[in-house]
Amino acid sequence: MSSTAIKSSTAPSPVVSRMRHGLAPWARISGIALCALLTLGPVIWTVSTSLRTPADSADLPPRIIPTAPTLDAYRGVFDKIDIWLYALNSTLVTGLIAAGQMITAGLAGYAFARLEFRFKKPLFALVLATMMVPLQVTIVPVFLELKAMGLTDTLLGLIIPAFPTAFGTFLMRQYFLGMPKDLGEAAMIDGAGPWRIFRSVYAPLAAPGLAIVGVLAFNYHWNEFFRPLILETSSENLTLPLGLVSLQGNLGTGSISVVLAGVILSMIPAVAVFVVGQRPLREGITSAGVNR
């Protein structure tokens, strides 16, 4: 049998080939739509329940689309808690932590990537090892240190301990390693020192990577609950996640619509930061992959 006959007998028919090419895009779209539905399902349910009256929020069978949408639950949030104060506290704490982590991660990542000093590798390994230590293990010594400095029950006590970031240091080190050394060597020939090289040459190029650190830090610490729960006791120093707990009422007897309305309101700043930072986040990940 000739090779032409073998090829013609094993090649798929035009109808089968068209079916394959026709089904593949629809299969991908269906899979993506299913994943999106599973991801957004709880959010859609939260928004739907926040627009119902307290009586309708417990209907069986549950309805996704409320029969009579109302904003009474959102008004109830402003009536029951000082959400503006809690949001201001969260914005101050989270914004300063994000800025502090961008600075510390940039400096530490550059030092581990470009500078030569004793015990460089063991120190970096020690930094990475801290990522494996749970927060619950270190909260007691952190609390005792803050108490000795008089920083318990203060916003400053939430901000300062969160400045060091092992993940951010690792991320920025990898980012700086992907940059060409020729830029720093050229600046060194021109008489620039290590600090000037970092500030004028590498830091501007690392802006997308720093944006990744800032966006991730903001979204994480905006929703942080455990540390503020341990370190804050005064109502005027509570962050937004802690303030929303009071919406549950005594023994959880509060309105579920009001609670979920508070959750939706607390999500708005984090979503806004992610939308604004989505472009530098995407560019940072893409450029890091290209550099490597």
Rank of each mutant, 00 (worst) to 15 (best):
A111L: 06
A148E: 12
Y86N: 07
L115R: 07
G168Q: 01
V127A: 04
A125V: 07
L144S: 12
A73V: 03
G184M: 09
G100H: 08
F176E: 04
L71M: 12
K147R: 15
G157H: 05
Q174Y: 03
M179R: 01
L88E: 00
T154C: 05
I81T: 02
P161I: 07
A148N: 14
R114L: 03
R173M: 10
G184N: 06
W84T: 09
T130M: 11
T94A: 14
R118S: 10
L71W: 08
A99G: 00
I139E: 10
A148G: 15
M149L: 15
I160R: 02
L126W: 11
A99D: 03
T165Y: 01
P180N: 09
R114V: 04
R75F: 11
P122N: 08
L183Y: 10
M132L: 15
D82L: 08
L107H: 11
F176Y: 14
D79K: 14
V77A: 05
G150Y: 08
L155S: 06
F78A: 15
D190Y: 04
I97A: 04
Y110F: 15
N89E: 00
Q136P: 06
A111Q: 05
L155G: 06
Q174P: 02
Y110H: 08
I103K: 09
P180G: 10
N89V: 06
F143V: 01
I83S: 06
L144M: 13
M149F: 15
N89M: 06
E185H: 10
M132H: 05
A162M: 08
L171T: 01
L177F: 02
L96P: 02
G184T: 02
E116C: 07
Y86K: 06
R75E: 11
M131C: 09
V142M: 14
A87G: 13
L183G: 00
R118I: 02
I97Q: 05
M132E: 06
T138V: 15
Y86T: 04
I81V: 14
T154I: 00
T70F: 03
A187I: 10
T94E: 01
A73L: 04
P194G: 07
E185D: 11
L183M: 14
I97N: 01
T91P: 00
Q136K: 09
M132G: 10
V137P: 02
D72H: 09
M179W: 01
R75W: 11
T169K: 11
A99M: 13
L146H: 06
P194V: 05
T130C: 10
A186W: 07
P180R: 13
A148W: 07
F119I: 01
L156P: 03
A87T: 15
G100I: 05
F78M: 12
L158F: 03
T94F: 02
F117H: 08
V133Y: 09
Y175R: 07
A99F: 13
I189Y: 05
R114E: 04
A105P: 04
A113K: 09
L85V: 13
P141D: 12
L85F: 05
A162N: 09
F78D: 10
E185M: 10
V133F: 11
